[in-house]
Design a protein around this nucleic acid. Structure first.
Length: 280
DNA sequence: CATACGTCCTGCCAGC
DNA sequence: TGCTGGCAGGACGTAT
């Protein structure tokens, strides 16, 4: 499931091929994937040139020379597939949006489960959209003190807070779980109950795991692929996520799984003591 | 405002 | 072998 490192890897890959291309035609094949009327979306992109490909949180942002932006939320299974040909690549079995460019190349947004969303935003709409997201965890603005203030505002389980894009942008279940394992903090701990040392540790481990995952080009569990169609390399480096019943790599205890707000959370019961034990 | 929970969607896989 | 029910989960809408 694409989170910040996966979106970053895809954006970097697309940034090598898309800038300079000019839109020839847009086909919306799955209307529920595009925000607003498909006709307006297609019209707004007509003859537009791509200036850059960037990232905000988990979103891939295609910036156009005219100042508008295509914001792509990949959801669970969304993939952006560039091709040197006008037709979608062979692997695109669930094409939702298809762009062809004036040089006869193309880009396909393919999404099996259709949790993904694509929208076209003008400069003002972009600013207000972006403002709704929390800070970028790898930016210099995201300090330990900033995280402390975010945690202090919530009694929610720390894992739930880390998934809230309004609080911190780009963190999903995999990296939230990994950062908490690194910081030795149980996923169900109330956010505002973390001690200052725990908060500092979480700040450090969150940034570290995101940076390392970017260096490995993301985590492929099943669907995620880079813009070049390759699997990410971070899966073998996971310490807790998906490792229920396996040994903790730090203390050899058996990794456990719990459900928290309907989502799986993985943790080491020895390294990450449960809230009751930690509170005493 | 903060928090909790249901909903969307389909491929996969364990279990019978 | 073939079927089925549960599961995966990011973001949003609604309820409390």
């Amino acid at each position: 499931m694409p989170e910040l490192p996966e979106a970053e890897t895809i954006a970097k890959g697309l940034a090598r091929v898309l800038p300079g291309r000019r839109v020839a035609r847009v086909r919306v094949l799955k209307h529920d994937v595009v925000e607003g009327p498909a006709a307006r979306f297609a019209r707004g992109l007509s003859d537009q040139e791509i200036a850059a490909v960037e990232r905000r949180g988990k979103n891939v942002v295609v910036r156009l020379a005219g100042g508008d932006r295509i914001v792509v939320n990949l959801g669970m299974t969304g993939r952006l597939l560039p091709a040197p040909t006008p037709s979608p690549p062979p692997g695109a079995h669930h094409a939702a949006v298809h762009w062809t460019f004036q040089d006869d190349s193309s880009l396909t947004f393919d999404d099996v489960r259709r949790f993904g969303r694509v929208q076209l935003l003008g400069p003002d709409a972009w600013r207000s959209w972006s403002r709704r997201l929390g800070p970028e965890p790898l930016s210099s603005a995201f300090t330990g003190a900033r995280l402390r203030r975010i945690l202090d505002g919530s009694r929610s389980p720390i894992r739930s807070l880390l998934l809230d894009q309004r609080k911190v942008a780009g963190v999903g279940n995999i990296y939230a779980v990994e950062a908490l394992w690194g910081a030795r903090v149980h996923p169900a701990r109330p956010a505002n109950g973390l001690t200052d040392p725990e908060c500092r540790a979480l700040h450090r481990t969150l940034r570290r795991v995101l940076r390392r995952a970017i260096a490995a080009r993301g985590t492929t569990l099943r669907d995620y692929r880079t813009a070049e169609g390759e699997a990410g390399g971070f899966a073998p480096a996971l310490h807790a996520y998906g490792r229920e019943g396996q040994r903790c790599r730090r203390c050899r205890a058996s990794i456990e799984r719990m459900r928290l707000s309907g989502r799986s959370a993985f943790f080491c019961p020895r390294c990450q003591p449960a809230p009751e034990a930690a509170a005493s």
